[in-house]
Structure formats: C-alpha cells, structure tokens
Design a protein around this nucleic acid. Sequence first.
DNA 1: CAGCTTAAATTTATCAGGTTAATAATTGGC
DNA 2: GCCAATTATTAACCTGATAAATTTAAGCTG
Lengths: 416, 416
Amino acid sequence: MPRPAASRGSATGRVLDLLRSRGTLSRVELAERTGLTAATITNTMRPLLDAGLVREAGVDRQHDRGQPRRLLRLDPEAWYAVGIQVDRTTTTIVVLDFAGGRVASAALPGTAGRGPHATVRTLAEHTTALLDRSLVPRGRVLGTGLVTHGPQDLERGMLLTAQPGPDWLEYPLADALAGDLGLPVLLENDASAAAFGELWAGSPPTDTFGLVYMASGIGGGVVVDGEVYRGRASNAVEIGHVSLNGGRTPCVCGGSGCTQAEAGPEAVVARALEDRALAERLGVAGTPDRTLADFHRIARAWRTGDTAAAGLLEASAAWIGQAAVTLVNLFDLDTVILAGPAFTVAGPVYRDRIAAELERHALGRSLSRPRVLVSSNAGTAAAIGAALHVLRTLPVEAPPALPATTESTLTLQGEP
Amino acid sequence: MPRPAASRGSATGRVLDLLRSRGTLSRVELAERTGLTAATITNTMRPLLDAGLVREAGVDRQHDRGQPRRLLRLDPEAWYAVGIQVDRTTTTIVVLDFAGGRVASAALPGTAGRGPHATVRTLAEHTTALLDRSLVPRGRVLGTGLVTHGPQDLERGMLLTAQPGPDWLEYPLADALAGDLGLPVLLENDASAAAFGELWAGSPPTDTFGLVYMASGIGGGVVVDGEVYRGRASNAVEIGHVSLNGGRTPCVCGGSGCTQAEAGPEAVVARALEDRALAERLGVAGTPDRTLADFHRIARAWRTGDTAAAGLLEASAAWIGQAAVTLVNLFDLDTVILAGPAFTVAGPVYRDRIAAELERHALGRSLSRPRVLVSSNAGTAAAIGAALHVLRTLPVEAPPALPATTESTLTLQGEP
DNA sequence: CAGCTTAAATTTATCAGGTTAATAATTGGC
DNA sequence: GCCAATTATTAACCTGATAAATTTAAGCTG
C-alpha cells in the first residue's frame, strides 16, 4: 500500500499543509516552521513548482538587507475538492480550491424522512449543479468528502447505526455517491471533520483541542498535537451519548440522560413546545425535520433579549458544559471549540456557559485556564474539513491540462 | 536533543520491545513481527550482541528443513530497573531485570499521613535494601520509575494536586528521590504506567484498550495501537472524576458524583461502616490509611459467599461500569482491563458487572463485543510498568563491567 | 557419504530522505 | 561600483532502511 505523496509525516505534506493554512510563505519561513533545513525546502519545492501545484508570488520586502525572500503559494486552480455535510435537518455542500479557498457553497434541507438512495441521488445532483455553476473543471476535482454522524465504517463507507432510519444501516453511502458523481468519496465523522476543518482552515490558538459539534445531534472530536484522535475504528468521542449526572430523558441509543437527549436542538425545541404561549411567541412550529429552523428561532429571540429563550438555551448549555468537563478531563485538554450549524446563532450563550462549567470543574484548570471558542465557520466547518481531508489525503499530482476551449479562455484572461 | 537508542520508532527499540515481551525469538520471527527485512534485523542485532544486551540462546527446531533459526533473547543481567508505586494506603516496589523478569518486589504501607520528604526517604531506604538483598549490582541499575496518582508535572517530577496533603503540591518528588537513591527517577501516572505494564508485560488480547486503575483512588489509562494516550500534558483519562448519572457524594476535587467518590475503596468501606453489625461481621475496622485492608476484607467475605459484601462491591462496580461506558464511548475502545491493588481480590465481581454495563450501553458493541479483563498482575502492574518505562526510555549502552570481586563470584558459580 | 534441496543469515550495492558546508544570486548601503 | 547581508541552490555525505546475491547450516536422497 503506497503512501500518498502528501501524507503528514513527509516534507512535501508538511509544506503543503503550511501553505494551505498560512496562504503565502517564503522558503525561510517554511524552513523555520517545519524545522527542516533551507536545502530540504528547496528540494521539496522544486517538484511542486514543476508540477504547477505551487507558484512563486512576489517577494517579501519586510527585511531591509540581503536578497529578499521569494513568496510561495499554492495554485488555487490546480485542484478542487468537494465537502458535503448531511444530516436529518441540514445539508451543506462546499467546493474548495487547492489553496483551501471557498469557491462555492450551498445550504440545503436535510435528509428528512427520505431513504439513503434518494438522498444520495439528490446530493449528487446538487453537487454537480454547484460545480457547473462555479465553473470548476470536472477533471480537476480530486474527490468528495462526505460527512455524517457516527458510528460509521469508514473503510466500507457506511453507517453502523439505524439513524436516521433503518434503511441507512450499512447502506453503501460512499460507493453510491462515488458512482453517481464519478468521483472518489471519503466518508468521515462530522465532528472529526469539523475538528479537522478548524485545525487547517480556522485559526485555533493551539493544535490540541476538543470540539463539540451540534447539528441535529451532538458529536465530539479531539485533536492532539495537530492529529485527530481516532481510537480503535474512527468512532471516537461520542460525546452525545455520555450519560450526564441528573439526566433522565430517554435517548435513541437506548440509554438515558445522554447529552444529546438532554441538550440537543430537539430537546430544546421540545421544551419550548411544552409552553404553548412561549412556542407561539417565539414562532416555534415543531415541524418534524425542521428542528434546526425552530432552534434558530429560539436563538434569535435570545439575541433580542428574550429571557425565556435565554433560559432554554442556558439549560441546554449547562448540560453540554457537563459533557465538556468530562471531555476535557478524560482527554486532558484546555481548549474547546464549538462548531456545527446549531452554534451559528446561539454560539455565544453556549460558549459562556460551557466556559463557566469548565472554570468550576475542569481538573487541569490550575495548570492552564480553560478556553471555549465558537468556530468562525460554525455552519460549514464540517464540510470544509471533509474537503480539506480530500485535498490532504488523496495523492496529488500535476493537474491535468484543461480542454482547449477553457485553456484559451484562461490564456486570453491572462493577457492584458 | 539526541533520541534515546531504544525509542519506539527505531528498529532497535522495536526489537528490544519484542524480545522483552516475547522472551525469545528468532531473527526471522523478528523480521515478520516488525515488518522489517531480515537484513535489517541482522544489522540491528549485531551491535546489541556486541554490547552484550542480547545473546543467542539455542536454535528453534520447529522447522524440519533448512538452516535452523537461531534464537535470541535479552541478557537479563545486562541492566536492571526499579519501579515504585506509592499511594496513601499502599506502596509496591519491584526490581526488573533487563528482560523484564521480576527480580525482587516488596509490598509496604502507603504514605499514610506523612509528608513527601519522609516518604521519599523511606522509599529510598526500602529500595536500597531491596536492591542489596537481591544482589543486584548497583552500577547496573538504569533508573527508577516513580508512580503516583495525577495530576502531575512529569517534566518537573512533581504533583499538581494537594492530595494526599497540601505539602505534596509541587514538592520535587522525582528530584528528591533521585538525590537519595543516586539514580535517575522518572515520574509517571499510576494508571498510565499500569496500562504500559499490561501492554509490555501482560498479555493483552489487543494493543488498543482502556484501563481502570483502582488503589486508594481511581484512575484511567488508554492505549491505542500500542501507544499510551497522553493528551496535552500527560494528565489524561482522569476517569475518577467523571460525574456519574445519579451520583451525589461530594468529592475531594470539589465536584460531586465522581466515580472515585461513589465507587472508590473508601466509599465501599464507608458504606460497610454504616451498618455496625455488618462492619463487625466482615472485620471492617475503618482505620484511616488502612482503607485497602478493610476493602480486601470485604472482598474476601464476598469470595466466601457473603451476600451483603457482594452487594457492597456490586454497587461500586455498577458505578465504575457507568464510567467505563463513558471511557469506551469517548475513546472508541472494545477492551477494558482492570488493574491496581484494589482488584487483586475483588477483580472478578468488578469484571462481570462492568462487562454487563458495557454489553448494555457501549455504542460500538455491535461492531465488536466489549471485553473486560482483570490484569494478571493487578497489584504490581503499575510498578512493573514504571520499571519497564525506564528500561524502554533511558538510553541503553553496553553494561559496565562488574567489580572484580563480584565477577569472580559469578565465575565460580558458573564452574561446576 | 557426496550432492542436492531448503531455509536462515549475511554481505553488498543501492536508495530515500534528510543533513552540512560551500557556493551562487540578489539586494541595500556606503 | 563594491561590500555586507541575506536568500537560494548545489554538492557531498550520512542514516536507516531495502533488494538481491551469497554464504552457512541443516535434512534428504540415492
């Protein structure tokens, strides 16, 4: 099994990672950040420059003497990758260029009650349309990262749970989508992908952190020393099913008092619906498969100062805070990042409440003060992470020449 | 910073590990197990044979044709290491030879109410006595692994908690012991050391497992792909302070419902003491700093069929089972090993009850059936792990020649 | 028992991926 | 226009592995 050229250990993989996350760097900076010598950087960059994956982009005139540093950047048009996050109530598709820039994105409804076959077909149609609309040459799309909740069998590209319905269990999601799209598809866990996205596309203050992902359900991810923790079979950090002290609500997993059952968007909406007048005031409809829309209504009410809405969110955040304490204590962390569509509006309430819980209960708090941050790309972090995963793991060669028509168009644009 | 010769990645480190855990292997088997070529094994072994760390030990006549495989083993007398596990209520000291064999061991009372200074002095005295008694040449002792509960600062070799008393916080344990013993001292977490000991000296069915360590307190360790999970600062897997659903007992950590407070030996003994008649029948004295002795009395009563004792242990095991479910779900594991002095007698009750909890609640149970095992060295696993850690991490050179007197004695013994 | 087969162990040449040290290139300042 | 400073490249080499050929040590066979 030959390793992909850009695997993490190699010099090539490391400089590509750095250029993708920092944008533009000189050889000297690359040498400093990787710990490699300047000679190695020269030798590593040459084939990348020859292949057209990396380009020189001006010089750095910060330093006043000597030869100026020549800046390097990834050629964004060398390759593209697609990331798809799909869930019962939301779907996000993003297209990234080789430099990690967002070329296009789409937000769609979730799987609702539909089966995997229909869902995959719809995803393929939307993805094809998005690629066409954004004028991305099909031959330069490296692959697609598909992101769902766990537990999953990543090798076989299927879910190992009957959620959202029994027909999803062991349905060959990755293969089906790969067939419809004509592209390789990598399946990934949503929370791990979001952690991955934060690591390489966000600006986390450290390369060791935990992540709480909330969409329709709640998941977790952990990154230690820049490496995603995967465990035995990549189904790690199922924080949504930690049984919380004081919890009683029964959960789909068969247990009770799970984080997801107590604190997930569904639980928050259900609690709002218990009070008819409140639900009406907040505009909470209770439509099945529209849970996140209702959740966002509650979050927006909180933003305009509604104390009842604040109470609902605070209660949920307190539960997640307890789960975060367990996460931080077991994995020895000091930083927790919040990502997922549920945090796009309500992020700050959760951040503050979770931070307070950690401040009180995290064991390592004397060593370093716990931090909680809302991802700057909360809604798209998982899809971005999935696309980045494709860019990082699939073997990268010189991009294929484009068909003549497109070539000439580009050439014309390039000539003043 | 030069890497120690036996670090895990290198061929040298890997063959030493294999020889230590398997005892005796041919070059062909070493090549197969490491994935290295026969040529590399030859080249790796030569300096080890020259240095006297490895010796040829007969041939393997299993195969009937061709040149027989020559067997290799570590020379047990090349080096030695000490492992010390210390706790409020128990102390264990072991001396291992270079092959990982147990040369000597001692079980002593714990720190009780004494301060770190007096404790370190006592440990040094006992260790010196043990080394003298077992005729281990002092010049061949590589170092000492000191094992305590966390949180710790491994670099500085000190505790970051005021347990068991305020004078322990940031007392330079490792340096003090190193001074008294005249040997390098490595500080380690008890549960991680036990996990390490199980991995290399036990016979775990897999190289990915979680470990619950119970002595005076409760700790956790995780090994993934043969590597101990360390987290940000090696204070990972504090399973003793996971807040459990239904728990109310206040804990020394400031929280309530923690595994340790609900299920630790102290809690079990306290519950026994609540019933005067029961305590008397079981012989539970309630003497402070003798908690484990009382706990063992309850465990022995269970073994002779006492249902009240069984009830006490079952209740504790149920709590730990809940913590184990969280451990297994967050770290994505299917195997849990029980180690620590508290499991020497009571192990089986805990094993069965924890297995039942995992069977019901572990998320990955459909993927692979969860297993729970009691360590075959429950009482000494941590001390053994600490000594192995020393053997594995400190740089290993050719052992120094012994003083003439000892040499001649040995020579005399060798002559018939 | 010489010669053949089999398998283990070793030697030799080579490679991959990095290093160090020397050299070339490019600029600002005097 | 030359020098000092700094970046980038080249060349020699080092480390830790591999593949292929060779040597060694058996058992089998006629």
